[in-house]
Amino acid sequence: MKNEFTQSKHVTHEKAPPITDMEGAHGVVKRLMDRLTKGVIGRDAIIELVIIALLADGHVLLEDFPGSGKTTLAKALGDAIIDDMPDDDIVTIRRIQFTPDLLPADVTGTTIFDPNTNRFFFRPGPIFAHIVLADEINRTSPKVQSALLESMAEKQTTVDNVTRKLDDLFFVIATQNPLDLSGTFPLPSAQLDRFLFKIKMTHISRDHELFLLNNLASVLKGAGDAFPRVTRTEILDARKVVKDLVYVHPKIKEALVDIADESRSDERILQGASTRSLVLMIPALQARALAKKRTYVNADDVQSLAYFIFGHRLELAPGSGTSESVVADICRRPLESLARQSLKR
């Protein structure tokens, strides 16, 4: 059973050879994109970001109103991934609905006494999955939040002093409602820092909405089997390819550092970008380059990801405008100089 795996009902293809080149990695992205855009209408940009985060081994925090397709997106993602190790007890997707009375054990799993065997055994919580949809993450108490966040950062969880590894492909899509804040526990910035992207979703366009209504049935059905899925291994391979093959020019790194510098010296920003954000950003940039079928990171990557990476990490002084404009401001000078660099030898 090690080598063979029985195809789940989703599996529509043979086991692929390991992905080692850009072509293959980009194929993964493409398949994911195709499937997700089929199931989630009008969210192409966000889908792309989510895929980038997935390949960059980061997590995303979606901020949106209820009913805007967060769950659909997460589910579509879970549907697109084939668990090619079905015997490891880790499922493809789990959803956790966070409520104030949720306990850490509800997230991480707990040790249960089995009267039949008279033994305690560990019963994994919902975080033992490839994709975890953490719905309304700000509704739960900080201790639950921190339990989840430990798992996110370390890819492991500790229950009863036993540390258990989570799956390599552990990807959290957390959501929160930006408006309905009563009775919530907003994530402290240290915890926000764990999310690679915070994505503010807006309503989809009129055309897309109309399209959705008109084609509700087929959209609800999702991509189905018409579009090829990807396996967990393929995603992990793609991650490796991203890390190894997409080149980040030193000047790009310089620009990132410059951006962080700018954020730290900008008066409107109380707390500038963390070093971790830069560390996390590199794979994100690489992943975006892959998504764009490039072997190198360019300034466009930096610019288009900057807001999603820095937006939730910067603590703005009151009255200093939206974080979007602030991020755009701190990026301007480094990006300009980066652009000019390309004309120099």
């Binding site: 360019n298 300034a299 755009a328 990006l335 300009e336």
Partner: peptide
């Protein structure tokens, strides 16, 4: 770039080349 600039097409400050 020179030719574009002569035709009045100029990159904005802070705009990436791709943009």
């Amino acid at each position: 770039l020179d030719r574009l600039a002569e035709a009045g097409l100029v990159r904005e400050e802070g705009e990436t080349r791709e943009a």
